[in-house]
Design a binder for these strands. Structure first.
Length: 262
DNA sequence: ATGGCATGCTGTGCATGA
């Protein structure tokens, strides 16, 4: 079973690339972020035609928006974080069936935060606190859980092209990293780091300054798995190929492979 | 030191991203 996350930076613009990628990479579940699309305009039929009967989107105009597509319909869908009043569409949670039982999948577009000390940064930390509470509750009910998406946080210095120059700037602050550590402390682990990975492997590159060509990037897209899924994890990799296409998303997809008995 | 690029909107520059 393969599960992927990809910040597509406008599904309107990127739909042909997403479809092309799915044809080459027929994953079982694809979680997308930054749709920049309302649900009424979600291209459901395009995904159904590719064999995805489960199509759940949680969009809004212009900004944010997340969607999860899967082979069979998702169940017990939750939009955003219950009890946290939020005008922005950032979290979509649902259950899918798998060969090792039900999987709870939390697809999240974490707040960017813009700049430490700003209102947006305070919103980011507040949002992270509430996400922590939500994930804790979900884990109690669903031992097999996946938390994935665009985290907008570098977990540590290995995840940044310039950890010294960017120390303390957005995506690199102690507060953000502490919030990520506290999510992991709930009983999750970073699937990417379970395998030997080339140094300077990133999932996002700035459109400006030839960021991709110079590999000036960040690893900010993650697939976290609950401890119960550790025996099933076979691979995790970041697919840079779509970033090389004309008019790419600034993010690359992250793919995990799970196998094995229940 | 700065801006650099991309997207959406009812716009014709601005807000946002990371």
């Amino acid at each position: 079973m393969k599960i992927a996350t990809w910040n597509v930076n406008s599904l309107n613009v990127r739909l042909p690339q997403v479809k092309g990628w799915l044809e080459q990479n027929p994953v079982d579940v694809l979680c997308m972020q930054e749709l920049k699309l309302v649900d009424e305009r979600f291209p459901r039929q395009d995904f159904e035609d590719l064999g995805y009967q489960g199509v759940d989107s949680f969009g809004q105009p212009t900004y944010n928006g997340v969607a999860t597509i899967s082979r069979a319909a998702g169940r017990d869908v939750v939009r955003n974080i219950p009890g946290f009043d939020d005008a922005q569409s950032r979290v979509l949670t649902l259950t899918v069936s798998s060969e090792f039982g039900d999987l709870r999948i939390i697809n999240a577009y974490f707040v960017n935060g813009q700049e430490p000390g700003s209102d947006k940064f305070r919103y980011k930390l507040d949002w992270l606190r509430h996400l922590h509470g939500f994930v804790a509750g979900e884990l109690r009910q669903h031992p097999r859980l996946v938390l994935l998406g665009d985290f907008n946080i570098t977990a540590d210095d290995r995840d940044s092209w310039d950890p010294v120059g960017l120390k303390g700037t957005i995506h690199h602050t102690d507060e953000e990293r502490e919030a990520l550590r506290s999510l992991l402390a709930l009983g999750l682990f970073d699937s990417f780091r379970q395998f030997e990975q080339p140094e300077k492997t990133f999932s996002w590159w700035d459109y400006r300054m030839l960021g991709f060509q110079k590999n000036r990037g960040l690893r900010i897209d993650y697939v976290l798995l609950s401890d119960a899924l550790r025996p099933m994890l076979r691979a995790c990799h970041i697919d840079r190929a779509p970033r090389k296409l004309p008019k790419p998303s600034d993010h690359a997809p992250v793919v995990v492979t799970l196998e094995g008995a229940a």
